[in-house]
């Protein structure tokens, strides 16, 4: 069975480590925050100028001066800090963020990612995504394996305008966890009950399968 968004978030949460500074992109990646293991201490970075993002506020504690990168009202945890956008992207571009999780429209075997523009259809802007993918070594792309029409989003070459060139090394989809290296997607784990054949059939870019591929443990 393909993973739900929550299950994808659960699997990504297994990559978190105690003491990490983490940037979770807008949309599905924010769900990862719900699965931080008990007792683990980490700080969420929000690129609009907050390190130490907390949960949503109550009606009583809502503060228009305290939002996240998705413009949602949030809170700040104990030990949080506020800073300018320049400082925020110094953290990001300077490689100080330990893990970045973000969504995408497409990725390819070279590790390129497209996530911000569909010509003629959608032009909202790239926000901080281009800086995030250029700045982090440890990036996980989180997305469905295929689009609603069944077209693969794991391609030989991205067709949409790029967000970053050759910068993505890991991707989690609803079907699999894959690594990108040497011009191919390497199948690391399968979603429970999903066959290698199904993953192969929905991966347009070159897929490398080595031996028995274990099922994900959630």
């Amino acid at each position: 069975m393909a993973l739900s968004r929550e299950q994808m978030a659960q699997r990504v949460a297994k990559e978190l480590q105690d003491g990490f500074y983490v940037n979770l992109g807008i949309g599905i990646p924010t769900l990862v925050a719900n699965y931080v293991p008990e007792g683990m201490e980490l700080m969420l970075q929000s690129e609009n100028g907050l390190l130490g993002m907390g949960e949503f506020p109550t009606e009583d504690t809502i503060d228009p001066d305290l939002i996240n990168a998705g413009k949602q009202t949030v809170t700040a945890v104990k030990g949080a800090s506020f800073f300018s956008s320049a400082e925020s992207f110094a953290m990001i571009r300077g490689g100080h963020v330990d893990l970045t999780v973000l969504g995408a429209f497409e990725i390819d075997v070279n590790g390129s990612i497209a996530s911000w523009m569909i010509p003629g259809k959608l032009i909202k802007g790239m926000g901080g995504a281009m800086d995030l993918v250029a700045g982090a070594d440890n990036i996980i792309v989180m997305m469905t394996h295929a689009d609603k029409r069944g077209n693969s989003k794991l391609l030989p070459l991205c067709e949409l305008p790029l967000t970053g060139y050759g910068c993505i090394k890991r991707v989690i989809t609803d079907l699999a966890l894959l690594e990108i290296k040497d011009g191919a997607f390497h199948l690391i784990e399968r979603a429970p009950g999903v066959s290698v054949e199904e993953i192969q059939s929905k991966t347009a870019g070159k897929l490398t399968v080595n031996g028995d591929v274990p099922e994900m443990v959630l």
């Binding site: 956008s85 320049a86 925020s88 926000g127 800086d131 060139y165």
Partner: peptide, 25 residues
């Protein structure tokens, strides 16, 4: 890109005419 925009403004105010960034390459 948001970080490039922030740095363009920071640099402008600091008298730096241009800078190299990996963002957007």
């Amino acid at each position: 890109p948001q970080g490039t925009l922030a740095e363009k403004i920071r640099a402008g105010g600091a008298g730096i005419p241009a800078f190299f960034t990996a963002t957007g390459y």
